[in-house]
Amino acid sequence: MNEASSATTALAAAERLFRDGAVGEGEDIAAFLDRFAARLARAYHHGELSYAVCDSIAGDLWALLQGLWLDGVAHRWPALFQQVHEAFDAGAYHARADGSDDPVATYTDPAIAAIVAALDGAN
């Protein structure tokens, strides 16, 4: 698969997550983000979306949530979403100055695996 078709496949998978996880009638943004975070974590864990795509989505939604929170629109902070965001965010920073470590494998992958295991255990 070439880079263009890989990007198209990732975009289609991300679009499915949004379409299938749309905000339900009467659902607050925190509930939506928690539900969406579960879908995002599972999609990453099962190899449906790359780290880069998931990290970007989680970061963009976190920025949106920050704005809503500051504007008084969000009344509750989404705990699961925060965990998933932190798991992806942890993969962005190298612990070694020379960048020879793999923060995604060291931090993100085990954190997402634990989140998915907890979600699957709760179902």
Rank of each mutant, 00 (worst) to 15 (best):
A4F: 05
S5I: 12
S5G: 05
S5C: 08
A7S: 10
A7D: 04
T9N: 08
A12S: 14
A13V: 11
A13Y: 07
A13D: 08
A14E: 03
E15P: 07
L17I: 14
D20S: 11
D20N: 14
V23K: 15
G24K: 15
G24V: 10
G26K: 12
G26C: 03
E27M: 05
I29E: 13
A30F: 03
A30P: 01
A31Y: 04
A31E: 09
F32L: 10
F32E: 07
L33C: 09
D34V: 12
R35N: 08
A38H: 06
L40P: 03
A41F: 07
R42G: 01
A43G: 02
A43V: 13
Y44A: 04
G47Y: 09
S50Q: 04
A52V: 10
V53S: 05
C54Q: 00
C54A: 11
D55K: 14
D60F: 14
L61D: 06
W62P: 12
W62V: 11
A63H: 09
L64F: 13
L65Y: 05
Q66G: 12
Q66M: 12
W69N: 13
L70F: 00
D71G: 06
D71W: 04
G72K: 02
A74W: 00
A74I: 02
H75V: 06
R76W: 04
R76L: 06
R76K: 12
L80A: 05
F81W: 06
F81G: 03
Q82W: 10
V84L: 03
V84K: 00
V84H: 01
H85E: 10
H85G: 08
E86V: 09
A87R: 01
A87H: 00
F88H: 00
F88Y: 00
D89K: 12
G91P: 04
G91N: 08
G91Y: 00
A95T: 14
A95Q: 15
R96G: 03
A97S: 09
D98K: 12
D98L: 04
S100I: 08
S100V: 14
D101H: 05
D102G: 15
D102M: 13
P103R: 12
P103E: 09
V104K: 02
V104W: 01
A105L: 09
T106Y: 03
Y107P: 04
Y107F: 14
T108M: 10
T108P: 00
T108G: 00
D109Y: 05
P110T: 10
A111L: 07
I112M: 01
A113Q: 10
I115D: 06
I115A: 03
V116P: 03
A117I: 07
A118V: 09
L119W: 07
L119G: 14
G121H: 01
A122D: 00
